[in-house]
């Protein structure tokens, strides 16, 4: 195991390269999911505004 982690003396290079790549993948997933959730939330807020606007009009008409 220690031998595996040592990477023949190149541990700093190999593990840094793999670590950064993994980080880029993870951040990509987080960013993509966040924008999807954000877009859905904004669409929901718009729906909420439309409904309250309609309700206000109905109240005025009464």
């Amino acid at each position: 195991m220690t031998q595996f982690l040592a990477m023949g003396g190149y541990a700093a290079y190999v593990w840094t390269a793999y670590g950064i790549t993994l980080l880029v993948l993870v951040l990509n997933v987080a960013a993509a999911r966040r924008s999807h959730r954000g877009a859905l939330r904004r669409a929901r807020e718009l729906a909420g505004r439309e409904t309250s606007r309609k309700q206000a009009t109905v109240r005025q008409l009464r």
Partner: peptide
Amino acid sequence: LLLTRLQAEIVERERGSRWIQELVA
């Protein structure tokens, strides 16, 4: 990743459309 971002972009662009409103409801 592309399909997830594309879904976000579609919702962003079509926010006011009927099908998106039905989707979020």
